[in-house]
């Protein structure tokens, strides 16, 4: 059995909201991921996907539970976690006044890639993503498609063993989204651990080796697509998702109706 590169146990995140009081954005989730695996977090907007991934990336601190990446605890050694990690999301933009090449050099150096190999690595990625033609142009002057390629290259420039993609295809056109999916496949084939969040069912079906359905901060069901189908009797992931969410809502409603009863473990 392979050593888990990502291990999440009872992870929680609570916020205090003036009107709602304490809000549990993530409510004790568990999962682990293996090298060469694409693990998908599938959930609606506000389900807790981004908060979970931000905790794994040490941008947010968990308020309960634990998470370790590549053997490093997110609270005890966040810098080592970040060195082992490439994080990509729609809200991680690039510096518009740097060129593509400078961007890659900067992120390689700041993420601890060996200084004497930075240039070679940058040139390798420039060729891999076909960005040589505009690698010397400032990022701010490039099209969104060009920027996306540089952004992906930026994410993997320090060759991290773990990659997190938080809804990476949001806002992309069909071709760009397809290209992103191809990159994720390639990275999986290279043996990277990939954690991928999406609310697009077809994307999860196509990309993920295992899928965790997340709703209101909790993972309702976790397994391969086939396992989900067998557990629910539904063929399409969309139906599986709706089935799991409805079941959770029903249980929640029952729990509200009889507050004395203990909550059912999912």
């Amino acid at each position: 059995m392979a050593i888990a590169n990502v291990k999440v146990e009872g992870l929680q995140k609570s916020f205090w909201d003036e009107s709602r009081g304490e809000v549990r954005a993530v409510d004790g989730i568990d999962f682990d991921c293996q090298p060469g695996e694409v693990f998908g977090l599938l959930g609606a907007n506000g389900a807790g996907k981004t908060t979970t991934l931000r905790m794994l990336a040490t941008i947010l601190k968990p308020t309960g539970g634990s998470a370790s990446l590549n053997g490093y605890d997110v609270l005890a050694d966040p810098e080592a976690v970040r060195r082992s990690l490439g994080f990509y999301s729609a809200s991680t933009a690039l510096y518009p006044r740097l060129t593509g090449r400078e961007t890659l050099e900067f992120f390689a150096r700041i993420n601890g890639y060996p200084a004497n190999q930075v240039n070679q690595r940058v040139e390798e990625l420039i060729d891999r993503f076909g960005i040589r033609e505009y690698a010397g142009a400032r990022v701010g002057k490039l099209s969104s498609g060009m920027r996306q390629k540089i952004s992906i290259a930026r994410t993997i420039v320090h060759d991290p063993p773990i990659l997190i993609f938080d809804e990476p295809t949001v806002g992309l056109d069909v071709m760009a989204a397809l290209e992103m999916q191809n990159v994720i496949h390639e990275l999986r084939d290279e043996g990277k651990v990939i954690i991928f969040s999406t609310h697009i069912m077809s994307e999860a079906e196509k990309l993920c080796d295992r899928i965790g359905i997340i709703h209101q901060g909790r993972i309702l069901a976790l397994g391969t697509l086939e396992e989900h189908r067998q557990a629910t009797g539904k063929h399409y992931l969309e139906d599986v998702f709706v089935h799991e969410v409805m079941q959770a809502e029903d249980q929640s409603a029952k729990a509200m109706a009889s507050p004395g009863e203990p909550r059912t473990s999912l």
Binding site: I59, F87, S91, L94, P96, F107, G112, H158
Partner: peptide, 14 residues
């Protein structure tokens, strides 16, 4: 404003 803040928060520097 440029959304580079979160990018910066994910680098390994403290």
């Amino acid at each position: 404003e440029r959304s580079t803040w979160e990018t910066l928060m994910t680098v390994s520097a403290s």
